[in-house]
Amino acid sequence: MDFDFSDDQQQLRDAVRRWVDKGYTFERRRAIVAAGGFERAAYGELAELGLTALTVPEAHGGLGQGAIDAMVVMEELGRGIVLEPLAQAFVTAGVLAQYAPQELQAAWLPRIASGEVLVVLAQQERKARYRLDVCEAKAVVAANGYALTAIKNIVSAGDQADAFIVPAQLDGQIALFLVERAAADVSTRGYGTQDGSRAADLQLASTPATLITTDGLAALELAVDTAIAAACAYAVGVMDQTCAVTFDYLNQRRQFGVAIASFQALRHRAADMKMQLELARSMSYYASLKLGAPAEERRRALSRAKVQLGQSMRFVSQQAVQLSGGIGVTDEYIVSHYFKTLTQLEMSWGDTLHHLGEVSARMQDQAGVFA
């Protein structure tokens, strides 16, 4: 199997890497965190690079690229621990392109592609505990469409978004709706998250909404799987840079007149970090390659990937802090920010234990060498 990237994908990687290195420095990121964790100007710069249009169909002003291109972009954004939620553009564009009626696609996909609007998924509820089939939000038929009553938590950049994709119960099954921020009775409470990014709680009270699809659970599963693949790729970029910074520190820090990188015990730990990074990278590739598979196969693959990524993120981040010594937990040193980002990513879209349970539940009667 050929895992080489195409020339276009390499050029895309180089363009995003240049922007991260020159346009999204650690100092700029710290200023964005201090200002609340989201900067519309930075999101606009991603749009100018064409990244918000990457997976939008060409018929709606996008570039029509696939999951591997999105993976390449997310890896590079991970290197800079970029806060702006570009992954949400991939998630919401995918759902709208596959499930929304044509008039809704025409109204929103071109604006997502241009970066004019930020549309985010608002699916998390307190009682759900990562389960997508648990949904207390209610939708009823109203005079001009539908009305939603819901409380959704930890909505990415929720108080900055222009619209939300919201699952809700309709006639006994989960349907998916689009809710505009400007609609009546929409309220948000924004806050910073552990990694410095921004989230919000979203409250709807008989709020006007537009139906995307009545096959809401299938659409929601696709959205979350897309988000998991993006998170895996982003985490690979974070871990790659975490290893690079840590190994550079080991080569510079000296004890007893020699670099501590010469100590065998530390070399072994560094090798284990590199091994976990490469395991994570291969499973990230696997996750992105499986996004186009049938739903059951896709769900099983994405859970497998998230289990490995969760284990790798925990190991790499904890080893980086320990090998960096006391400086590893200070706000001034970038490794502490990598640690917080990887810790939060491990819990996003289902933590390792949740997905381990999913892998177990989806195992076939015969598996592995017994198949």
Rank of each mutant, 00 (worst) to 15 (best):
M1L: 11
F3T: 14
F5T: 07
D14C: 03
V16W: 02
R17T: 13
W19F: 15
D21G: 06
D21N: 11
K22M: 12
G23P: 00
G23I: 11
Y24C: 04
E27P: 03
E27M: 04
E27S: 07
A31L: 14
I32F: 05
A35N: 09
F38A: 09
R40G: 09
A41I: 04
A42C: 11
A42T: 14
G44L: 00
E45N: 04
G50I: 08
L51R: 04
T55D: 10
E58Y: 02
H60P: 07
L63I: 03
G66P: 06
D69R: 07
M71H: 14
M74I: 01
M74V: 01
E75W: 01
G78E: 02
G78A: 09
R79T: 11
I81M: 08
E84V: 08
P85S: 03
A87H: 15
T92C: 15
V95D: 10
L96Q: 09
Q98G: 04
Q98P: 00
A100C: 05
P110N: 02
S114R: 15
G115I: 01
E116Y: 03
V119I: 13
V120W: 01
Q123F: 15
Q124I: 10
E125G: 12
E125N: 08
R126P: 02
K127D: 08
V140A: 11
V140G: 01
N144K: 15
Y146T: 00
Y146A: 01
L148N: 00
T149W: 03
I151V: 00
S156F: 01
D159K: 00
Q160I: 00
D162R: 02
D171M: 13
G172V: 05
Q173Y: 03
I174P: 04
A175K: 08
A175Y: 06
T188H: 00
T188P: 05
G190E: 05
Y191D: 06
G192V: 00
Q194T: 06
G196I: 07
A199F: 01
A200Y: 02
A200W: 06
L202I: 02
A205V: 04
S206C: 05
T207I: 01
P208S: 03
A209N: 00
A209F: 03
A218S: 13
A230D: 13
A231S: 15
V236P: 07
T242R: 00
V245S: 03
V245R: 10
T246P: 01
T246I: 09
Q252N: 13
R254L: 03
G257R: 04
V258G: 01
V258Q: 10
A259Y: 08
A259Q: 06
A259T: 05
F263M: 09
F263Q: 06
Q264G: 12
A271Y: 13
K274H: 10
Q276R: 14
L277T: 09
L279A: 10
A280R: 11
A280G: 10
A287D: 12
A295K: 09
R299N: 03
L302D: 01
S303Y: 01
R304D: 10
R304N: 12
S312A: 15
F315A: 14
Q319M: 15
A320V: 12
I327P: 05
V329F: 05
V335Y: 04
S336V: 12
Y338L: 05
L342M: 12
T343L: 11
L345R: 11
E346K: 15
S348P: 06
T352Q: 11
A361I: 05
A361M: 14
D365M: 13
Q366N: 04
G368T: 09
